[in-house]
Each structure stands twice: as C-alpha cells, then as structure tokens.
Amino acid sequence: MLLQIKNLKASIKNSDAEPILKGLNLEVNANEIHAIMGPNGSGKSTLSKVIAGHPDYEVLEGEILFNGKNLLDLEVTERANAGIFLGFQYPIEVPGVNNADFLRLAYNSKQVFEGKEELDPLDFNELLENKINMLNIPPYFIERSLNEGFSGGEKKRNEILQMAILEPILSILDEIDSGLDIDALKLVSESINKLLAPHKAVILITHYQRLLDYIKPTHVHIIYQGKIVKSGGAELALELEKNGYAGAVK
C-alpha cells in the first residue's frame, strides 16, 4: 500500500479551536486515482497540507504511513524527496527566482537525496525542454520568475510542470481545476493523464465533477466535518453532482 492514513486528527497549531480533521481514514494504492470531494471547510485542503507537512498544522492523533514508513516523523523536505508532491491551490509567487533555476534546484535536491548525480544546467535544460514539449508549455514559462505575474491557469500548469520534473510517486493536487477556464482545464487534465504511471498514484481534491470528466478516478471519497463519510467509484461523483452534498451525507 502506498498511503495509509489511520484515524487522523489534526488542528491548527496553537489554536483552541476544535480539530479540523476528526479521525480520517484513507488508503491509496499504486495505479489508483482518488478524488476527494466535500463542501467548503470540510478539511480537504487541511488533509493535503498535513500530508505534505505544513508547519501550521498539528497532528493530534493517528498516523500516516507512506510505503510503510511513518510520514509524520519526516520533515517537509524529506517527504517531498520520498516522493510526495503537493500541487498548491494557490501556488506562491516568488519574485527574483528564475523558474528554470528553481526547477533545476528542486530536481537536483532529489538527485542528491537519492544518491544520484546532479545535472548541470546544460543537461537539465535538455530534460526541461523535453518536459515542456510533452506538456505543451510555452518556453516563456521557464524564463520568468517562479509564478510571478502568472495567470491562475499558468500557475496551475507550472505546478504540473514541477510534477513532471520531480516525478513523484504520490501527487496530491489541491483544487488544480480552480480558476481554470474550459480550455486550460482540458490542457491541465491532459497533462496529468500523461504523467500517470502504474507505480504512481494521484489524489485529486476538487469541488467539481467537471475535472473528473477528464481524469477518470478509480475512487471517489466524500469528506465531511473532518472525516471521510462515503467512498465509492466514479459514479459517486456523478451522484453528488445530481443531489449535492446534503443528499450524500445524510
């Protein structure tokens, strides 16, 4: 099993408010695509951040195993290097940091972690060029500062480019479809489909069935008040679309 989350309870660090995740269970295997849906404030983004190790959250109870290893013992950097990728709902703009340099640095960090040789700029550019061609990303993307002045759609495509470079085993894509018009949604979805592989898995966090028209999930989960309350196949998302969350969680 790739990812196993057992009875996960988590809250915002140093806060008296009640936990956001209240005993969540989830199992993800290689070659699976899980869609996690749920109303606003149900804990979807929190779940993704807790898995990635965001410092604002505190795990109160439960465990997260990744390839059988306790993920909660690892730092953010180590989780990333172990093969976990979080696609941000709102990717951060980092002025002054060239996108290509950033991608090379991230790639080489992983190489070092895996005891492999770092790529020099020339070799890396070749790899980068292959990836942007594959994803139909225009060359100006990599010449600019990381996400600076990017449109919503460009930022999301840049997340997918990072995913393509880092080749994570588990990608958690937090509302990758938000802020995208139909054309961009199609582009992004096609890119994600290209990056699927039998030894990998994807968790899609989304509000809308629309994304799942393009990326077919093997599993759909409904998260509500910090727990997964219903799981099923792709048909569950269609049902949600028809009856809304109220119908699904009662």
């Binding site: 950097t77 951060i92 950033f102 990072q162 880092l166």
Partner: peptide, 10 residues
C-alpha cells in the same frame, strides 16, 4: 513551505 515541499533544503 512552497520551496520545502519541492524537496529543497531549508
């Protein structure tokens, strides 16, 4: 956090 989540050291 964004950079760390890409495997870059602190």
């Amino acid at each position: 956090f964004y950079l760390l989540s890409r495997g870059i050291s602190k």
